[in-house]
Design a protein around this nucleic acid. Structure first.
Lengths: 189, 189
DNA sequence: TAATTTTGCAGACCGACGGTCGGTATCCAA
DNA sequence: TTGGATACCGACCGTCGGTCTGCAAAATTA
């Protein structure tokens, strides 16, 4: 079970790569399965052998995109010891990554609508949201039972800022704004 | 120009009402134009005479839903003099309204994906976001040039809370959380 | 090595859907 | 009265997501 498995994995990778591009460019609705097949040179049978449907393909794309972003953030934070500083850097990295339409369109805009809020939340729990919660927890600035809620509010605010930054191109200002936002939300008082 | 105009308006109202229900129940993708026509007893010609396409119908639905919510919030705040208290009440009313799937699914989940972020923002500016900005401004708690940004972050956080409340059903806790959130975000320091 | 099963993939086919278009009836305005 | 605009009808079309049968090659078993 090796040659065939490798071929299958390669096919999946190819489909994910192409679908990621098309979903980011045209949105979920605007990107057609047939376009993915045409670009990949594969057949419908191949795609539906690996993915149950268009939404499953989208979910796989989302998973891959988030995993990628997560790795980059982990890398950016790797050598930072101070939890508060790590949190700040991680958030700013995330905002910078959201400059890429792949993140913006797929993760921030289309995902909740395509997967439904519940499935979307479950997936986020394993990625951006999970990381943020862990980082928040590490700072120790919040009571244990408030971490989850604050993470929600904070992530929502961060994502909104990311969209604003992407639109205005004013990346420089984001730093100050995020710093201020964190200070306000984390102040235990 | 009266009987015809009235008939047209009535037809539009009917389409909006039915489409609102179906969009809320099945989401934008899951709700078919044909289902709307079947329930209304109208023809395709009628619908496409009034609306340019499915997304235009959705936008009209969204407009109507937001206008409705806006009116309810305005009503809830009408006799409150203290701006800070009005802000708090308005926000809590909005969260309560988001208990309705019509608001949740259409406004909070599907809208950005269907309209695209830009068109969505422009529409929000005339409704929830506009009201919030005005309310924030009235409190005088923020420097003029920070109102817009804070309104974005605040609305994003509020909407997230609304979704959480809707899921957990824990409406009682929302009050305290929102109060705390407002206090933190508006504290000028 | 031979037989059998499983896996990866092909592509014809289908129903549903969003959207178009020519046509008709009714109302209003000149 | 008549010309044009408005509201609406419904047949038709292309596209899209999804299904199904079939097949060759690899893996497994005998």
């Amino acid at each position: 079970m090796n040659l065939k498995a490798r071929r299958g994995a390669a096919t999946r990778d190819q489909l994910i790569a192409i679908a990621t591009r098309l979903f980011a460019e045209h949105g979920y609705e605007g990107a057609s399965i047939e376009a993915v097949l045409q670009e990949s040179g594969l057949s419908k049978g191949a795609l539906y052998h690996h993915y149950a449907g268009k939404d499953a393909l989208f979910e796989a794309v989302l998973e891959s995109v988030e995993a990628d972003a997560g790795a980059k953030i982990a890398e950016a934070v790797r050598e930072i010891d101070d939890p508060a500083e790590a949190l700040r850097t991680g958030v700013l990295t995330w905002i910078r990554l959201a400059g890429d339409p792949v993140i913006r369109r797929i993760v921030l805009i289309d995902a909740p609508s395509v997967l439904g809020w519940e499935r979307w939340r479950a997936l986020e729990e394993r990625h951006a949201f999970g990381m943020l919660k862990a980082a928040l927890h590490a700072t120790g600035a919040l009571p244990e039972d408030q971490v989850d809620l604050h993470a929600h509010v904070l992530l929502a605010g961060i994502n909104e800022i990311a969209l604003l930054v992407a639109r205005s191109g004013d990346g420089g200002n984001a730093e100050a704004v995020v710093g201020e936002l964190l200070r306000r939300l984390l102040r235990t008082g």
